[in-house]
Design a protein around this nucleic acid. Structure first.
Lengths: 346, 346
DNA sequence: ATGAAAGCGCTAACAT
DNA sequence: ATGTTAGCGCTTTCAT
C-alpha cells in the first residue's frame, strides 16, 4: 500500500537535484540565503514531491532542544485531564508537544521505581522541561535527584512539595475553604463538620485552614473534623455521628468523591440531603452516581494547566522574569442542590 | 542547587576510565560481552557516579525506532481521557511512551491545517506508530496522506473512517442501541424517541440502528428520531413535542451530554423525569449538573484504550497475526433513576 | 552562490 | 579483551 520513497533525507534531495547536502540544508532551513532562485525552487519542489520531513531527533541531538515537554499528570482523573487540556492549548501555539506519562500515587516501593523509570524515559528523550503533579508529598528525593540535578526546568501543579522550591500552579485552597465557610454561614449553618484526607495532603489541609479561619471569627460557629478514605468513609461518618450530642447541619468535604461517599452514607442513615444536612464538595468533578446535584467549587483546572504551561515556556525559553513563581487560581462556588438554608428549629 | 557535570556522554566516561568509546558502549549496552570484570565494574561505577543517561534521540535516529507513540485523542473529554488512561497502562509495561496532542474537531479549514501540523510534529519526531481518534469522519485524506503513505502503523479508536481500512477499537454501538431498546421495552415503553447527532456521526448512526432493530420486532413499538446539537437542543425538542399527537414516554439519547440537554429541556416544559418521560443516555460521563442520576451505558473506555494499545504494539513489533483487526467492546447498562417502568394509564 | 569537512552521541562492522 | 573506522541526518564553520 501507499508509496513514498523510504526514508527521504536531505541527501536524497541533494542527489536528485545534483547539488550538495549543504545546499539543501541551507535552502530548506532558510539560512545563508544567497542562493539562486532557480536552485531554491528546484529544491523546494523536490522536497515537496518526495514529502520530505526533517528529522527532529537529529535536531534535538545537535541543539539540545527538542520542543518536547515531559508531562507527568494522570489523565485518569477528570480534574487532571482538564489540566492536561489547558497545557495542551498553550503548547499548540508554541511548537511544543508533550510526552505524557504518570504514576498515580506512591503507595509502595514499586511505585517509586516506576516513577523513576518514567522520569528516565523523559530524560533519555531529552525533554526541554517537565511539568509534574507530585504523586506524593513526602518522597521528594526521587524527583529532586532525577530532574532538578540535571537542571531540567521543573514546574509543579496542584500539589506542592515542601522541600522543593520551583514554579507552582495550583488552587487557592485556603480561599476555597473560606468561601465554603462563608456560604454555609450565610445559609444559617453554625454546627459544621469538615471531612478531609488528613494533614499529609496539603490541599485538604489548606481547605480546612481557610474553612476554620472564617468559622473562628463567626459567633457560635463550631467545626469538628474527621479524615477518611474511601473504604472507611461510611464507618467513620456513622461513628462520628454516634459520638456527637448534636448532629452537624452542614458538611464541607475536601473533594467531590469524598462528598459522594458522605452523601450516600448520610442517606443510608435515613437522613435527607439537603433537608437534614447540607453538603458541599470541592472540585466540580462528581460522577453521575450522586443522587443529588452537588454544591461544590470549580477549580478551573484548564486555567491552572495554562498557567503551568506558560511557566514552563518561560523557563525553557529563558524568558522568565523574577524568581520562583507561585500562582494560585481562586476556585468558584457552584451552587447546586446539596446545600440549602438551615431550617430554624421549631 | 544541583550539580552534575553538564552533558555526560559515553565519551566522558571513556576518558575518565582511560578506555575507548566503543568499550563503554559495549559494556553499558551489554553486547559483545568479552570484557574484564574489572573494566566492567569501573565503567558501571563511573556511569553511576556521573548519572549517565543514554541519548534516546541518537538511538532513535540510528535504529529508526523511538519507543514513542503518537496519540491523537482529546484529553479534554472524560470519556477520551479514560481511553488515554487505558493506553497508558499497556504502554507502561512495554517501554513505550506517548506523545499526546489532538485537534478536537474539524469544523473549519484552519482545523485541518492544525491537524496536519500535529501529524508533522509526530512524524518529525519519528513516532513508531499512531493511535488516532478521527476528529471527523469525512476528511479522510488529511490522515491518509500524512500517515498511511509513510507506512506508519495507524490504529483508530472510537470512530471509524469509511475510506481507511486499518485496525480499529471502539464500542459495539449497535449492541448498545439494542440493549437500550430491550431495557425500555422491558419497562413497558412503546412510544419512543431517539435523539442523535445525525447520520454523519457513525456512533450515533449505529446506536440508532440497533435501537430500531429491536423496536421493529416489537409489536406496537414505534420510534421517531430527531438530531440536534447543543445550541438547538431545547428548541428542537420542544418543536418535536408540539408536532406530536402522542408524546413519547421514553427517550434514548446518543450520549450523556445530549441526555442532559434533554433532561433540562423536558423539565422546563413542566414534565417530570422519570415520572412522565424516561430518559437513557450513553457513555456514563454525565456531569454533576444533571438533576437526576442518568441511566446510561458504560462503554468501558479504559478497555478500549488497552485494546488499541495492544493493536499498536502488535503492529509496531510486527507480531500482528492475521489481517486488519476490528474489536468492539460491548457497553453495559448502568441503571440509575432517569428511566423507570411505564405507568399504565388509568 | 556553492562545496568540503568536522562534529553531535552512539552503534556496528572490521580489525588486532 | 579491546581499539579503529565508518556512518546515521543534519548544521555549521571554513573554504572557493
Amino acid at each position: 500500500m501507499a508509496g513514498l520513497k523510504e526514508n527521504v533525507t536531505m541527501k536524497t534531495i541533494a542527489e536528485e537535484a545534483g547539488v550538495t547536502l549543504t545546499t539543501v540544508s541551507r535552502i530548506l532551513s532558510n539560512k545563508g540565503g544567497k542562493y539562486a532562485d532557480k536552485t531554491k525552487k528546484k529544491i523546494f519542489a523536490i522536497a515537496d514531491r518526495l514529502k520530505y520531513r526533517p528529522n527532529a531527533l537529529v535536531l534535538g541531538m545537535q541543539t539540545g532542544e527538542t520542543g518536547t515537554a515531559g508531562v507527568m499528570i494522570p489523565a485518569s482523573d477528570f480534574f487532571y485531564s482538564q489540566i492536561i487540556s489547558g497545557i495542551h492549548e498553550v503548547f499548540l501555539n508554541n511548537k511544543t508537544i508533550m510526552l505524557l506519562s504518570w504514576n498515580y500515587a506512591i503507595l509502595k516501593k514499586e511505585d517509586e521505581l516506576l516513577e523513576r523509570r518514567i522520569i528516565h524515559q523523559l530524560v533519555d528523550r531529552r525533554v526541554d522541561g517537565i511539568i509534574l503533579r507530585p504523586s506524593c508529598e513526602e518522597f521528594e528525593r526521587s524527583y529532586f535527584e532525577e530532574i532538578w540535578e540535571r537542571n531540567i526546568p521543573l514546574i509543579l501543579v496542584d500539589r506542592e512539595m515542601a522541600k522543593i522550591s520551583t514554579d507552582f500552579a495550583g488552587t487557592d485552597d485556603e480561599a476555597g475553604g473560606k468561601a465554603a465557610a462563608e456560604y454555609l454561614i450565610s445559609l444559617g449553618h453554625r454546627n459544621m463538620l469538615f471531612v478531609g484526607a488528613g494533614n499529609s495532603v496539603s490541599t485538604s489541609r489548606h481547605r480546612e485552614t481557610g474553612f476554620r479561619k472564617v468559622l473562628s471569627e463567626s459567633p457560635n460557629a463550631c467545626c469538628k473534623s474527621i479524615s477518611t478514605d474511601q473504604k472507611n468513609a461510611k464507618e467513620s461518618l456513622l461513628n462520628f455521628f454516634k459520638q456527637q450530642t448534636s448532629r452537624p447541619t452542614a458538611v464541607f468535604c475536601y473533594n467531590d468523591p469524598v462528598a459522594e461517599w458522605v452523601v450516600s452514607s448520610v442517606e443510608e442513615t435515613g437522613l435527607s440531603i439537603p433537608g437534614d444536612i447540607s453538603i458541599i464538595g470541592f472540585g466540580n468533578d462528581s460522577s453521575g452516581n450522586c443522587n443529588i446535584p452537588l454544591t461544590t467549587f470549580d477549580q478551573h483546572p484548564q486555567k491552572i494547566g495554562a498557567i503551568a504551561a506558560q511557566m514552563y515556556l518561560d523557563r525553557v525559553n529563558g524568558t522568565a522574569v523574577g524568581g520562583i513563581r507561585r500562582e494560585l487560581v481562586a476556585p468558584d462556588l457552584v451552587t447546586r442542590a446539596s446545600a440549602r438554608p438551615l431550617n430554624k428549629p421549631a
